[in-house]
Structure formats: C-alpha cells, structure tokens
C-alpha cells in the first residue's frame, strides 16, 4: 500500500494551486456572495409562520405603545381627563359606566373607567407604554449584567468564576417577588424626603433596578456555559497566539458567537419583565396615580369585577396576547438560530 501522500501525488500533479479548488470543494458551485450566519438565521425565521405572526403582533404592540401620543391626538382623548365626571350620561348613579361592555361607544371605544370616568382605551395604551418601556429598561439591565457576569466568569475562570457563581446562586435562592415588594419602598425612601412626592422617573428607575438586579442570573449561567465551551476552541487560541488581549477576545471572538443565546433570552425575558412590572403595580409598590399603568389597571379592575367585568377584560386580554406572542417569538428565534434544538 501507499501512504496517502503518495496516492495524492500521482492524482494531483503539482499539488496545490487554484485548480485544487474545484477538486477540494464540491460545494463551491453555488452563488458567489456568501450568506452570513445571521442571514441564514433570518432565512430560517422567515419560513416559520408562527414566528412571523407573533413578530407582527409584538411589533403592533410596540407601535401602539410608541405612537400612543399620536393615537391620542387622532382619537381626541387623553388618559387623564375625567370624562365621566364632565358628562352626566357616561356614568350611572352608582358611578358605573352606563351601557354595555363598560360603556363602549363610538367616542369611547373601550368604554370608560368606573368612578373617575377616564377613557379606558387611552388608559390601556398609555399603561402599556409605561409598562413596555419599563420592561425594556429592565431587560437591558438584565442583558448587560447577565452577559458581563457570565462572560467574566466563563472566560477568566478560577477564583473569579467561583465567587461570581456563588453570588449567582445566592441571588437565585432569593425569594425575588417578596424582595421586590420589600425593597421598592426602601429604595424610594433612600432618595426622597418623606414629605415630598416621588418623581415618576425615580419610581421607574427603582422598578428597572429591582427587576434587573433580580433577573440576570439565568442569562449569566447560559452565557457562562457557552463561554466555557468556546474558551478553549482553537479559534480563540489562534487569536491568543496572535497576541490578542483578553478584552479583544471577548469582544471579537466570543461575543459574536453569543448573540443567539442573548437574543433568545432577551425575547423571553421581556414579557416576564412586563409581568414583573405589572406585579409590582398590582401589589401597590409600582407606579402610582396618575401615571397610567397596565398592572394597576388590573388591580383597579379586580375591585369592579362584579359590576364592570369589561374594565378588567381589555387590559387582561391585551396582556395575555402580548405575553403569548412574545414567548412564541422567543421560541421561533431560538429555532431559527439553532435548528437542531427543536422542542
């Protein structure tokens, strides 16, 4: 028998050269412009109908949240005016909306609020705006903390990894919802004198801080695991041999490979943060009147569930659709990134 070298030498005289291309890569015959992994993921995503529909729903929600002021102009109402108090016909003698479906009509599409008589449609739109913005902020905090802590632990290893890991475990063991309820008044009290009103931005900041601080652990663990498997891959070693700094390796070699877990985790984190923010308002430590808020509409609505079920129906249905669509989107994004994972 001959050694592989000899076999080849006879079949390919001259050895290497551009002509090898045709031999060496049969797959090289397709289109001349290459597709990036991102483009491939986009192509897979486009074929996923559930993903596309949920993406449309999610975009719709974002659009109406962003465009709430514009819609308010067109619609001619705002979320603060007490329409029921100004008109004699909108509320009945028990201060409940007169008419069916919470007083839905051509001028108040989703009816009006019991007692105060504000416009439910506007309340919902602005409430969603508040909640989604806050949840986005919290998700940003979660992603930054999670990626930073996961990358540091995974790449540096050793003692750094050990202590970051213990810290992660500690926070995971925290009864986070109790902690949120308990810490919110403490945080606001730390910045605001007891006789002053808490400004809205401070409340929002505190909510973002608390939900963010208690939400990064899952992502950090995921990123750490992914970093660990990649840290010793040969392309990282090649960068090291060329003299790349740890910071460059994290930025240029590791991070681009982590976009999929980050994106997937962020799409799943956002709806859960919307629920967290709503929960805080529901138990009374979130946004307060007059700031319109999705979660507080629930707690208000719960008080009138007997007399005016429609008042709870609108925000409830909106939230179920929103959270569901977002979770389906998260699944689709994951499938598109990693077609093997499946369900």
């Amino acid at each position: 028998m001959t050694s592989p070298v000899q076999t080849e030498d006879t079949s390919v005289p001259g050895g290497s050269g551009p002509d090898v291309l045709t031999k060496d890569g049969a797959q090289e015959t397709k289109a001349s412009e290459g597709l990036s992994p991102g483009q491939l993921m986009w192509m897979r995503f486009k074929r996923d109908r559930t993903g596309i529909i949920s993406a449309c729903v999610v975009i719709f929600f974002f659009l109406i949240a962003i465009l709430a002021p514009v819609i308010s102009k067109l619609y001619g109402k705002d979320p603060y005016t007490l329409y029921g108090q100004n008109s004699l016909t909108l509320l009945n003698e028990f201060n409940m909306p007169s008419g069916s479906f919470g007083g839905a009509s051509g001028s108040h599409w989703f009816g009006i609020e019991p007692n105060l008589g504000r416009d439910v449609f506007m309340q919902l739109l602005y409430g969603m705006r508040t909640s989604i913005y806050t949840a986005l902020g919290a998700t940003l905090v979660v992603v930054i903390l999670g990626v930073l802590i996961g990358l540091l632990g995974g790449y540096l290893g050793g003692a750094v990894d050990f202590w970051l890991g213990r810290f992660t475990d500690l926070l995971l063991g925290f009864p986070s919802q109790l902690f949120m309820i308990a810490s919110m008044p403490v945080i606001t009290a730390a910045f605001v004198k007891p006789d002053e009103n808490t400004p809205v931005w401070l409340r929002a900041g505190a909510i973002i801080f608390v939900t963010g601080i208690l939400g990064w652990m899952g992502l950090a663990r995921l990123i750490r695991a992914a970093t660990l498997t990649m840290r010793d891959r040969e392309f990282v070693e090649a960068a090291k041999i060329s003299g790349a700094s740890p910071w460059r390796i994290i930025r240029k070699e590791l991070l681009p490979n982590l976009w999929s877990p980050i994106l997937v985790q962020a799409t799943l984190q956002l709806p859960s943060n919307v629920l967290n923010v709503a929960f805080l308002s529901f138990v009374g430590v979130g946004f307060v009147e007059p700031t319109p808020d999705w979660g507080r509409m629930f707690s208000n609505g719960a008080g009138f569930i007997q007399q005016d079920p429609a008042y709870m129906l609108y925000p409830g249905a909106a939230m179920v659709i929103f959270v569901l669509a977002f979770n389906l989107l998260g699944d689709s994004v994951r499938d598109a990134f990693d077609p093997k994972s499946g369900r």
């Binding site: 070298v5 080849e8 050895g15």
Partner: peptide, 8 residues
C-alpha cells in the same frame, strides 16, 4: 484525498 494537497 485532501491530506496530500495540504501537505504539499
């Protein structure tokens, strides 16, 4: 079959 090309 490709080993030798790379070695060469």
């Amino acid at each position: 079959s490709i080993q030798a090309q790379v070695v060469n």
